[in-house]
Design a protein around this nucleic acid. Sequence first.
RNA 1: CGGUGAUUAGCGCAGCUUGGUAGCGCACUUGGUUUGGGUCCAAGGGGUCGCAAGUUCGAAUCUUGCAUCACCGACCA
Length: 571
Amino acid sequence: MRTSQYLLSTLKETPASAEVISHQFMLRAGLIRGVASGLYTWLPTGVKVLKKVENIVREEMNRAGSIETLMPMVQPADLWEESGRWEDYGPELLRIKDRHQRPFVLGPTHEEVITKLVSFELNSYKQLPLNLYQIQTKFRDEIRPRFGVMRGREFLMKDAYSFHLSQDCLEKTYQNMHKAYCRIFDRLGLDYRPVLADTGSIGGDASHEFHVLAESGEDDIAFSDSSEYAANIEKAEALAPQGERPSATQELTKVATPDVHSIDEVSAFFKTSNDKVAKTLLVLGECEEGETAPIIALVLRGDHELNEIKAEKIAGVAMPLTMATDEQISAAAHCDAGSIGPINLDIRVVVDRSVEYLNDFICGANETGYHFTGANFGRDINNYEVADIRNIVAGDPSPCGKGKLTIKRGIEVGHIFQLGDKYAKAMGAAVLNDSGKNQTLTMGCYGIGVSRIVAAAIEQNHDQHGIIWPEAIAPFKVVIIPMNMHKSARVKETAEKLYAELTAAGVEVLIDDRKERPGVMFKDMELIGIPHSIIVGERNLDNEEVEYKNRRSGEKSTLKIADVNNFITEK
RNA sequence: CGGUGAUUAGCGCAGCUUGGUAGCGCACUUGGUUUGGGUCCAAGGGGUCGCAAGUUCGAAUCUUGCAUCACCGACCA
């Protein structure tokens, strides 16, 4: 490709709307342009990268025995009514009508379509297991799109669905997909980790997310420092403290604490630390429609944060988790939010494992402006349940039993999980088994955010000058940068010869044949992040040489012109 | 959806307080100059100042409403 005949579209300045580095470089290097919030046009260079990611995903899915299909983005509403998600999915599902006023949705995912398909196409156990995938555009009407294509509303996704008669068979495919995902991210050249993930409402143990590690990631990942254990913080279990709870040494004492509300204020008032204070949050419990929701108290140590996923899983707690309003708080605890405590509270009380271990702690007295000191379980509080409801913090013991946890940020680029029979049951996907009986299928589903990978790769591979593409997904492998080609016939001739040779050898090569000063070319090519540069200048031609520069290492060397082709081809 | 801020040329911004014919840098075009790290000089083209209403002789500027965008929060297979 010649830059003179290409659409390079680089920007010198960073558009003000781009917050994260990948978004800035994607705009500056001419990979994407915004069209509306969360919607982007992919420019030629961006498309080249996107296609490379897509092809690696496709090759490895094919290799793993998955079969490519393509489903429509626009899906009829009745499929979603059949699965129950027309009601459940919420406003993230974009609902549209056709000219006949018939309702449709823009597909945020394709479980409905694929399961319906399979229910028609499969009749016999002999056709199982089956694993189908597609690489296709999804639309999710995110509340807040951000970070460019990292969280866009329209994005490219690879989604695969597998169908089985037995859990055993599903687990085999699941493991196979796990391996295929590792191969994909290995080939992409990314620093990634498979981590245990929450399975949502489906339950079961088997769900993994694949995270690219980067500071700008939106998820917290917990790692053991001495084992392979890694889990999304939503999922990571906080173990109960070891040993016996220390016994009570103080009397329960009510202390006036005027204008003291937050945990920080409480611990400052009592000149102690947050971990000696219990905070009590009131949430709504489940109830029948029209009834008044019961209120449930969740008690955490002052220095810990509530894990909403864990809290939602407690039987009787409303899903989604809903905090009580001020009115509900004063009705249930007879005080303001800043003075709630578990003592003499006549509602259901769930305390975190770490709280139960406390002795002589401080908590609200359920009377506005008062706190208790010297609170103790067993003596002052007897009616309570214990559960794991907090986020783990760095330094907690690993749930696997080995080592302590550290926390890093990750970008979720893949997610695999075992779906069970939720959709198969709803959409009537069943086959005759070997005893001639109708049997509902069990499913797995496996997603990769293809467009998000492009952004994640940049987050992980850049410097102050621009992108440093991993070799496998670079838009071009090599760029030829001629110095003052329009002045020097020798330079032009050599650059053109190398361009022809490399092109003939099947190398993706870009030649910068613009009439630009060298500095402009260098800056642009570094911004775009092409891994290898060949610089052709008068300076080296007398020796039949050109200069080579590596984008990642910065390493420079001179090459004999005759050796360039082999040198680049072997890279 | 709550909070914050923004909206003036393709991009980055000034002008608004104190109303009076719309500016700067980059990019673009032309000519010259320069040529191994975003040269320099000159001349150009490009904007009904987000939209609507109001105040006023006169509105980018003041008032009101709306829209869009971004950030923080909540939310998120």
